[in-house]
Design a protein around this nucleic acid. Structure first.
Lengths: 218, 218, 218, 218
DNA sequence: AATGAATGAGAGTTCATTCAT
DNA sequence: AATGAATGAACTCTCATTCAT
């Protein structure tokens, strides 16, 4: 863990704009991510984090008032990144200009999220485990995702339906089927068979085709 | 929580064959399921469980040597139920006799798992949250599921592929796409929109059709 | 431990006169002696004793109101046996009749205590460990030993001093030197080198001679 | 107990070389020695120690991982002091130069151990009570004492035997008789009659003479 | 007489957090 | 900014003892 992790540079960049993080603080976050993702938030102790980070126990609480604040400081900024691809102002324009057909759109989204997951894997794991236990997380997630992403995503679905590229079913249902498939792809890749050889290109292809055939008119 | 929960009667039945559970023990398990599923294993305290169960804290440890043993006593028996539909001896015969086409097979599996999830929801939630943190669980799961279910499932896929009802793609890939879709259906139903109105019949239909179109030759 | 231990038959005999012990009670005492002597009183748990005795936890408390009562029921009766050799009415007569010289007296005492220690070893161990922590034990010991044994022992010392067989030094000092030597002999035999081969006859001889030379006029 | 005990200054000195003990830590050790020696290790509770030391219970465990570690930190360093008189490199030289006859040698040893016992009495008491129940203690004791002390002591015995000052009997036997007598002296002094008036000079004299007469050729 | 489930006080230990340095 | 000793509440677990059966 001596090389700098991708999620860390992201996190640094996010925080950088606000204020500098000290060396020790970086070490703390690094250790916290590792331990939280390995044992879960409640199963991790601040003293263990301090030890792995090579700082005194008190130092953690100089930067984060509570253990929970440390968790949130890790997980919250990742959420805005999560929804980044949809946070464009003129979504419909992008859609029309860049993605003439569903396939290209789906492929772009899938690859984009694949890279995102690859980069932020440990934090995503933490996020998914803790979201049921922390209202702040859930609320924050609902606000950003529900409002921003869902709206844009439905718009995209309707767009392609109008073009006759997707069959007519309720947007939430279409959304569910697409997201399930892509999430299943990511979970399989990163959780179930992380080490085994798998032909990524091919699997992406199968996955996109599956959605396409499943949702396009015959 | 004074009415008897469905998962409890199941659990009782499983244990009944071996030895009787006392009244207090039932109360303990009941309370533990509730609290574990609400706060996670590490976030729950035995004293809280004891209080909710209306027993002395020591009583818990009379029946379960450790807090973890209590967890396993709840989660482990559910695993065998999880794979029950595949634990038939002569699987191919059942396949041929009962399910002339993929659609009926998929529909049966989906509805069956839907009912299962409805019954065991809190325990499944506990299981899914704890499996990354407990080796015993992971091992046990791998042994039962990997060996039993995967094998049978692949057989079914090959069976329908030979009949020309499914397109030719690697069994693991086909499996992944199907399972993703069904799991996404269940997660949506029980976690994301548990209270909202949703037309279950219709959603099942959409889901099955999606898989069908996605995987059958045109 | 399935054969009946010598200290047990003694204990049974002592109690027999008062009341019968049930089978389970015997098992309890047997287990208690073993465990107390191995782990100390405070370090032993009644549940462990019950388990080793093959009885229910409650059964112990049917026979002994408290854990401590169980301890005392084991240790107390041994005390009267401890002082038995001195509990003769007409001690001086015995002395004159049976032991014409100190050597024979010392040899008799030593061998007698050796046999006693061999028989009651585990209980003696318990006794010696617990006496500093239990006032009842200490009081009881002082009353019996101080009053009975010391008095008689001093009498014997004076007796042999008058005869010129022992040099003139204060009885307590003489007593201390003799007892130290014999106790050292027993402790070596049973605690320090319990398993190693040692020529008992010879060691007894050395020990007696040592005391004799150390205390007799040249 | 507000004055500083002699054994404490010793213990501090031993540890000082390695690392400083905090004020509270000293208080903890002080309280632990008192309570362990009064009630035995298993019979003492950490909460009682904390209370007597005037610290929070958690503080104990900041300095000692377990209750047992606290015990060992008290008892172990005393063991090296116990054998100090024999831990001289050129033992035979010391023997020849400083102790021309057995009497002076025995007297020196006795007085030296008497002072040692006076200083470390509570810790010695703890040590002797706990040694049967803790393998680490027993092993450590065997290693240091058996190897170091016994060897040297036997050498001394042979030395005086060669000079004709001691009769020819097996070294272990001679050792046993001498140690028994001195230990008996110390136990009497500190355990049996701690408060009563006793003429120490005189008693030492009797004791030395007893060993001398008992073991020297006539 | 015997059981063993149940108890609740208290055991040893961990923990997030504070604070003087 | 950083330390690490100190805290005390809370944790898991053990124990001697009780009591309905």
């Amino acid at each position: 863990m001596s090389e700098i992790e991708p999620w860390l540079t992201e996190l640094l960049r996010l925080n950088d704009e606000e204020e500098k993080m000290t060396d020790k603080q970086i070490k703390i976050v690094q250790a916290a991510v590792e331990i939280f993702s390995e044992k879960g938030f409640a199963g991790s102790s601040t003293s263990e984090i301090a030890q792995k980070a090579g700082v005194a126990e008190g130092t953690i609480f100089r930067h984060y008032k509570t253990k929970k604040e440390l968790l949130l400081s890790i997980v919250a900024p990742m959420m805005s990144k999560l929804i980044a691809p949809f946070a464009v102002k003129d979504f419909t324009k992008v859609l029309e200009a860049d993605y003439p057909d569903v396939e290209q759109f789906l492929r772009a989204i899938t690859i984009n999220r694949l890279e995102f997951a690859r980069k932020h894997f440990p934090i995503i794991k933490i996020f998914m485990h803790e979201i049921p236990f922390h209202n702040e997380l859930r609320e924050q997630f609902k606000e950003t995702v529900a409002v921003l992403v869902l709206e844009k995503a439905y718009k995209a679905i309707r767009h392609f339906q109008k073009q006759g590229q997707l069959i007519e079913l309720p947007e939430p249902t279409a959304m569910r089927l697409i997201v399930s498939t892509i999430m299943g792809f990511l979970i399989t890749r990163f959780l179930l068979v992380p080490d085994s050889e798998w032909d990524e290109e091919e699997e992406i292809d199968y996955t996109i085709k599956f959605i396409l055939y499943g949702l396009s008119p015959r």
